[in-house]
Simulated assay, not measured.
Amino acid sequence: MTIPLVDLTGKSCLVTGAASGIGRATATLLARLGARVLATDVNAAGLAALHRELAQTGLSTATADVTDPEDVRRAVATAVQRHGRLDVAVANAGVLPLSDVLETTPEDWDHVMAVDGKGMFLTCKYAIEAMRRTGGGAIVCVSSISGLAGQARQAAYGPAKFVASGLTVHLAVEWAAQGIRVNAVAPGTITTERVRALADEPGGPEYLTEMAAAHPLGRLGAPEEVARAIAFLASDAASFITGAVLPVDGGYLAR
């Protein structure tokens, strides 16, 4: 059997946090690989811009807040309604504060855990509900190197990404028999809009310089490089891969 690398033709895909960064790059790539993509985000203007760029591919959008169970349930239901089923869910939505434990307030902790932790749980939960009705599917969670190893000034973000990594391996075991694969990518520092904005924040320029030097390839990554890994894990080319947390980190974790 020959499986093209990477073919997503006709696959029904949901991508959260798709208005910018890794999510936008992923929604763009999946659509260009033939998938029928529903892109969601809280940023309606960003979604509108994405739709204008990719309307010819059939990509559609829906505003949704991943911290709200009804919003996530509605997004999954919309994908099923528009495309007949859900084959792929990319749980990407997240926030990235840069603070140590003394600077991080309880409110900061709650917000990061709500988006990066609870939001990923809800996306997986309702995606699995849909996928089990149609014989399976693939979920890709966006974790981080901070979800596999400790980093300074990641007091809330890092633990939230450990949730992403942990959720991935547990759900992979739990749902393998139902034909549902669950994997994750663990990006290094990626030049998303949020990361580029760090250059204007206290301590940000120093952090970016340090992080570039910490990646053995000697640079930060691009969103499109992470999107390619996500597309592979979402595709049938990865049919015997589940429970993996794949570093896309320029060698950071190999040091």
Rank of each mutant, 00 (worst) to 15 (best):
S144M: 07
R36P: 06
A214R: 13
A93Q: 01
I22G: 10
G21Y: 01
G150P: 00
T2V: 11
H83R: 09
A19E: 04
R228Y: 04
V163E: 12
R52P: 01
Y126V: 01
P4W: 06
A48D: 14
G135Q: 00
P216C: 05
A199Y: 12
T242S: 15
T104V: 07
A160L: 04
D108K: 04
D236M: 04
A79N: 05
K118D: 04
A212I: 04
E224R: 02
L38G: 07
G58H: 03
G166A: 04
V6A: 12
G250R: 05
P216L: 02
R228P: 05
V66K: 06
L220A: 03
I145P: 01
H215K: 07
G34L: 01
P159K: 00
Q154E: 14
P216H: 05
A156S: 14
R228V: 08
R181Y: 02
Y207E: 11
E70H: 13
V72P: 01
M113Q: 14
A155G: 04
T104Y: 00
S239M: 13
S99T: 11
E224T: 04
G23W: 01
D68C: 07
N92G: 12
H83G: 08
A79E: 05
K11Y: 09
S239L: 13
A149M: 12
G150T: 03
V112M: 02
A149P: 03
L233P: 08
V6L: 10
V195Q: 15
A39M: 02
A89K: 07
E206M: 00
G243K: 13
V226P: 13
G21D: 10
A45R: 15
S146W: 14
W175P: 01
L29A: 02
Q154K: 14
L86H: 03
G17V: 08
A91P: 04
R85Q: 07
P205I: 09
R219W: 14
T105N: 08
A27P: 06
T63S: 15
A75W: 12
A130V: 09
P106Q: 06
L98G: 06
D116G: 04
A62F: 11
L253S: 00
Y207H: 15
H215P: 07
C13N: 07
A55P: 08
V72D: 02
V95E: 05
S144W: 12
A127D: 00
A229H: 00
V90S: 08
D65N: 08
V182Y: 09
T105S: 15
G188F: 01
S143A: 12
T78R: 15
G158P: 00
T67C: 14
C124L: 10
R219K: 14
A48H: 10
L233T: 07
P69F: 03
A31K: 10
D116S: 10
K11H: 11
A212R: 15
I230C: 00
V95K: 09
K125D: 10
H215R: 05
W109C: 10
E107H: 02
Q56A: 15
R132C: 04
E193L: 11
E193H: 05
D116W: 02
A197W: 09
